[in-house]
């Protein structure tokens, strides 16, 4: 509805304005609602008794199982080893993907040489590499890290390359007309310009790395959140499966918020207006 009244003070903009703004308090209220409502639905569904506990345990069962896991089954140890595997694989990916992506996004010959290859490999299912990885690396810690790495690295390279390619040409050419050498354009223009996008890529790929965790811990593991979920399946401990999945979700949420905080801290100019 249009409101052309001039006498009244300006109204607050509508909640559902396209790309509109809402207050900080409203934002967190809605976020809370978004988290609590599914929890309530879950609770009421399991409490109603319509679904047996084997199919869907209630929040209380899951909580109790998690507490039991913590007290008697070394939950912290499982979390620790899983975080280690994910972060190690992801860190190793980043260590190689950032310089490689920078090279692909900067130099056309490098792009021609490596991008089609990477595009090809990234469509290969990481899971299918399990037998090969076991054959090549064995059933050491390295094999689990390798699986997650395969799932993460190739995507990451392409995304970093794209981040670098998105640096406006005018920024590069300005440096050139100020006499910048090639290495200076890379270190003083491309890298600092692409850094915020690269950190976002790292945040997103960290999430992907977690999705490969359960698969990686299929490989003759005897610890870890993914392994615990798989073993719970064998014993039909649905509540433990729920607990494992939710814990992974919570770790992901935490890491994501850490990345966002780091982004705000490292690139303050993006958050100024």
């Amino acid at each position: 509805m249009h409101n052309f009244s001039f006498s009244r003070p300006a109204r607050r903009p509508a909640w559902f304005a396209v790309r509109g703004q809402i207050g900080r308090r409203e934002y967190w209220m809605l976020a809370l609602v978004g988290l609590v409502v599914p929890l309530l639905l879950w609770w009421s569904l399991s409490a109603s008794g319509l679904v047996t506990k084997v199919f869907m345990p209630g929040p209380a069962d899951v909580w109790n199982r998690a507490v039991l896991w913590f007290r008697e089954d070394d939950l912290l140890g499982d979390i620790g080893i899983s975080v280690y595997r994910v972060v190690a694989a992801w860190g190793l990916s980043a260590l190689i993907a950032i310089p490689l992506g920078l090279a692909i996004g900067t130099y056309r010959p490098v792009q021609a040489l490596l991008e089609p290859l990477t595009d090809f490999i990234r469509y290969m299912p990481a899971v299918a590499f399990i037998p090969l990885v076991m054959l090549w690396i064995g059933i050491t810690e390295g094999s689990k890290i390798a699986i997650i790495w395969i799932g993460t690295f190739f995507q990451m390279v392409l995304m970093v390359a794209e981040d670098v390619r998105r640096v406006p040409m005018a920024q590069i050419e300005t440096a050139q007309t100020m006499g910048a050498r090639r290495s200076e354009i890379v270190s003083l223009v491309l890298l600092p310009a692409a850094k915020p996008a690269i950190l976002d890529t790292l945040r997103v790929t960290m999430g992907w790395a977690w999705t490969y965790l359960v698969v990686a811990e299929l490989v003759a593991a005897n610890s870890g959140l993914g392994y615990a979920i798989l073993r719970a399946q064998r014993f039909l401990q649905t509540d433990k499966i729920f607990a494992g999945i939710i814990i992974i979700g919570l770790i992901g949420l935490l890491l994501d918020q850490l990345f966002r905080a780091l982004h705000r801290k490292a690139f303050p100019w993006l958050y100024l207006r």
């Binding site: 300005t174 007309t177 003083l188």
Partner: peptide, 25 residues
Amino acid sequence: AMVFQHYSLYPWLRVMENIKFSRRL
């Protein structure tokens, strides 16, 4: 020297650092 229509400033540098970029090189 060249001046472009837009997107040529370095958003991660303050105004003074942008102006002194050639000296930095």
